[in-house]
Each structure stands twice: as C-alpha cells, then as structure tokens.
C-alpha cells in the first residue's frame, strides 16, 4: 500500500488543463493546411492530379482541399513538389457539416454547437458507443487515449459505454467495410432517439486510404446522418476532444 502511494506521488498529477490551457503540439505535427494563393492554372492542375486520395480539386481554377479526404501525408506531393499547400500546427479541425470541410480561401469553419434542446440533453452528459467499421486501430487507439488520465474525458461528462442502449450517440471509425455495414446499422438502430452521429477519422468521413476499395463504403456519409466530422489519419486526441467540446458548446 505504501509503495503504491509513494509511486502515486512520484508519478505526479498528469491531467492536462485543457481547454483552459492550450496544448503544445509537436513541432512536426501536421494540422490545418494553408493553401497557396495565386497558383498558376498549371500548378493548380498538377497539384490536383498529384493527390492519390483525390482530396484536392479545382474550383473554377482555384485550388480546393477536402479535409475529409486529406490524410495529412508527410510526403504530400502537392506540398512537396508543387508548393500548393503547407501544414500548420493548428489541431482544431472538426466541423459540423460536410461542406465546411472544403477549404479554398483559408477560412475554415470549425464545428459549432448543437441547438439548445440538444445541448440541454447532452451538454453535461454524453454517452457514446464506439463502432470500428474497418478502422486500422489507430483511430480507435487515439480515442481510447481520451479516457486516460491525461485527457480525462469523464471530467467533461463524456464517456464511452458498452451498450448502444446506454448511449446517446455513436462514434464511427473506419470506411465501413461491407462486412461491418449491417452490424453498424444495427448498433445505430439500437440507440434510443434522439441520438448523435460522429465520424472520426478520414476513413469514416470519406473512406480514407480505402476510398477506392471494392470491399469498403466511402465512410458513413451515405448511411447515417452525421453531426460531427473529425478529420485526420488518425485524428490527434486533441482534435477529437476539441470537436466534442465545441459540439456540446463547452468551448467556442
């Protein structure tokens, strides 16, 4: 017992002060991209063609980036070869609407809060059922991290629960493999109304690296009504936490 207490003192208090104190992200962390303005039509077209996951498109000659498809690749050819974009350190990426994820003029609309009645229901207590539908276990691992003492998700009243019957919403990872489709829909159906749907990670938003797989759907967009999108491959735990708290109106 004494050894345990001694070790407890040695390990110290580790729960972060987020959201009062901003987290320090690693220097090489790849967050919200900044698009180069004034690209020539040629370099814009080259950049669009260079992305293997079709995250880039040309919107009337102007470069547009779909953050739902972006994997924040370290060797992004559009960044390295065409100087079309650069990654900033900004981890705040979650949005409420799919169309908000299309970035073209470097103004990015992060998630807004739920309406008043939903906030009244879930603002101080949100229980989530997580379903991995073809995820590579990186998204799942970094959601699990939110329950560790560093992030201590429970202090915000948010918790992952075992049964969909106990849940207020579903948090999906993975592109939705054909083999997980019915289990995912069954789990969603088992959650009592009203319920929230969160797509966490590039796979759940638009298929991620598996966007061309015949064995996977392109995320949950066509299957479920999504309330929160959390981009990243996988999203940083702070990206996910920021999105959840914004949705609940706990940070603005």
């Amino acid at each position: 017992m004494l050894t345990i207490i001694r070790e407890r003192l040695r390990q110290g208090h580790r729960t972060g002060k987020y959201p009062k104190v901003e987290p320090i992200m690693p220097e090489r962390f790849r967050g919200l991209p900044q698009l180069a303005q004034n690209l020539t039509p040629q370099s814009c077209a080259d950049a669009v063609a260079s992305c293997p996951f079709t995250a880039l498109s040309s919107n009337g000659g102007k470069l547009q980036l779909d953050l739902g498809r972006c994997l924040f690749c370290a060797d992004c050819p559009a960044a390295a070869d065409h100087a079309a974009l650069a990654f900033s350190n900004d981890y705040r990426l979650a949005t409420s609407r799919r169309e908000d994820m299309f970035l073209d003029d470097n103004v990015y609309h992060v998630a807004g809060m739920l309406n008043k009645s939903m906030r009244k229901l879930f603002g101080r207590s949100l229980k989530l059922r997580q379903v991995s539908a073809g995820g590579c276990n990186a998204c799942e691992a970094d959601l699990n991290v939110l329950s560790t003492l560093v992030f201590d998700l429970a202090r915000f009243g948010i918790q992952f629960v075992a049964s969909p019957r106990h849940a207020d919403g579903i948090m999906v990872t993975g592109p939705v493999t054909e083999n997980m489709k019915s289990a995912l829909l069954d789990t969603y159906a088992a959650i009592p109304e009203p319920k929230l749907v969160i797509a966490s990670g590039a796979c759940a938003i638009a298929g991620g690296p598996y966007c061309n797989s015949p064995e996977a759907h392109q995320g949950i967009g066509d299957l479920l009504p999504v309330d929160l999108y959390i981009p990243g491959c996988p999203p940083h735990p702070y990206t996910a936490l920021d999105g959840l708290l914004r949705m609940l109106g706990r940070i603005e």
Binding site: G134, T177, N179, M180, Y210, S213
Partner: peptide
C-alpha cells in the same frame, strides 16, 4: 470468426 475489418 473474423473478417469484419476486411478492406481488400
């Protein structure tokens, strides 16, 4: 019995 994560 696995296969639920099969992405091809």
């Amino acid at each position: 019995s696995l296969g639920y994560q099969h992405r091809g």
